[in-house]
C-alpha cells in the first residue's frame, strides 16, 4: 500500500478523526497521524513529524473560530503560559540533535510516557470524585499572582446552562508544566497539548473546557515555533502534508462544534483515553530506540 491515491485517501480519513479528537481534548492529533504515516505507508519519521506539525496547526486554527466566538478560550492565560511553552519548545528542538547523537532519547520517551500515565490516573481519580457528587474542582479563591496578571475569567456553558467563573490557582507550578510541555513539543515534534491540559486542569484548576480550548490555542503557537526547523529542512512535503491538513481542518471544525455541546465529564473521559494511548506510544518508542 504505497500508492499515492491510497495514501491521499487513507490519510485524509485518519486525519478527520485525529482532528475531531484533537479539538475535543486540546491536543494536536499528531499522535494518530505519525504512526499512520510511518507504519502503514513507510514514510520516514522526519517527514511524518513535518506533517504532524502541520496537523497541530490545523487543529488549532480549524477549531479556533468556534472557540473565539463562544469565548471559552482564555487568551490571557494562554498567552502568559505560552512564554514558558515557546521557550521550552526552542530548547527542546535544539537539544534533540544532541540527545539523538548521545543516545539518550529513549530516556526522554520513557519519562514523558510515565508522566502521561500518572496524569491519566489523577484525571480518572477526579472523574470518580465528580461521579460521587463532588462538583468540578474549579478554583475561585483569589491569589496575588492571578490578580496581578488577570488570570481569571468566565464563560457561558451551553450544556450546563450556567456562567462558569474561575481563577487560576498555582500559577508557578502550571508555568513549570508548560515549560515541560514545550520541551516535549520541541523534542518530539508534537504540540505538547496533553501536558498543557494537565497543567491548566491539575495545577490552575480551571474548568475543563477552558483548559482544552486554551491548550488548543497554545499548541498552534508552540508548533509555529518549531515549524521553521521542519520547513527549512524540507520535511514538510506538500503532497504528504496536504491530505493531513485538509482532514484535520475538517475534523477539528466538527470537533469544536461538538465540544461546546458536550458535558465536561465526557470530555474528561476522552482525555483519559488520550493520555493512556499517548503514554503507551511514548513508552513503546522508548523501548524501540
Amino acid at each position: 500500500m504505497t500508492g499515492i491515491y491510497e495514501y491521499l485517501l487513507v490519510m485524509f480519513l485518519i486525519s478527520i478523526f485525529a482532528g475531531v479528537i484533537g479539538a475535543l481534548v486540546g491536543v494536536g492529533g499528531g499522535i494518530l497521524v505519525v504512526p499512520a504515516m510511518t507504519i502503514i505507508f513507510g514514510v520516514p519519521i522526519q517527514y511524518a513529524a513535518g506533517a504532524s506539525i502541520v496537523s497541530v496547526i490545523a487543529t488549532s486554527s480549524g477549531a479556533a473560530t468556534a472557540y473565539v466566538k463562544d469565548r471559552i478560550t482564555n487568551l490571557r492565560i494562554g498567552m502568559f503560559l505560552e512564554i514558558g511553552s515557546a521557550t521550552g519548545a526552542i530548547v527542546g528542538a535544539v537539544s534533540t540533535f544532541f540527545l539523538v547523537r548521545s543516545g539518550f532519547s529513549w530516556l526522554i520517551f520513557l519519562t514523558f510516557g510515565l508522566i502521561l500515565f500518572f496524569s491519566a490516573y489523577t484525571t480518572a481519580e477526579r472523574i470518580r470524585q465528580e461521579r460521587r457528587g463532588d462538583p468540578e474542582r474549579i478554583n475561585r479563591t483569589p491569589n496575588s499572582i492571578a490578580t496581578k496578571l488577570k488570570l481569571s475569567g468566565e464563560y457561558e456553558d451551553r450544556v450546563l446552562k450556567t456562567k462558569v467563573s474561575y481563577i487560576a490557582d498555582s500559577v508557578p507550578g502550571a508555568f513549570a508544566v508548560m515549560a515541560l510541555a514545550g520541551l516535549m513539543a520541541g523534542l518530539l515534534g508534537v504540540g505538547g497539548g496533553v501536558l498543557k491540559v494537565v497543567g491548566m486542569d491539575n495545577f490552575m484548576k480551571l474548568p475543563f473546557k477552558v483548559s482544552t480550548t486554551t491548550s488548543n490555542f497554545m499548541i498552534g503557537v508552540t508548533a509555529a515555533a518549531s515549524t521553521a526547523i521542519f520547513y527549512v529542512g524540507g520535511y514538510i512535503n506538500p503532497i504528504l502534508a496536504a491530505p493531513v491538513a485538509l482532514g484535520v481542518l475538517l475534523g477539528s471544525y466538527v470537533g469544536s462544534k461538538v465540544l461546546v455541546r458536550s458535558k465536561p465529564i465526557s470530555l474528561r473521559w476522552i482525555f483519559v483515553v488520550a493520555l493512556v494511548v499517548i503514554g503507551a506510544e511514548m513508552i513503546y518508542q522508548g523501548f524501540v530506540q
Binding site: V54, I57, S60, S61, G220, A224, T227, A242, A245, L249
Partner: peptide, 8 residues
C-alpha cells in the same frame, strides 16, 4: 500550507 502555517 504557507497560509495555514501563518495563521497562528
Amino acid at each position: 500550507l504557507v497560509v495555514l502555517l501563518a495563521t497562528p
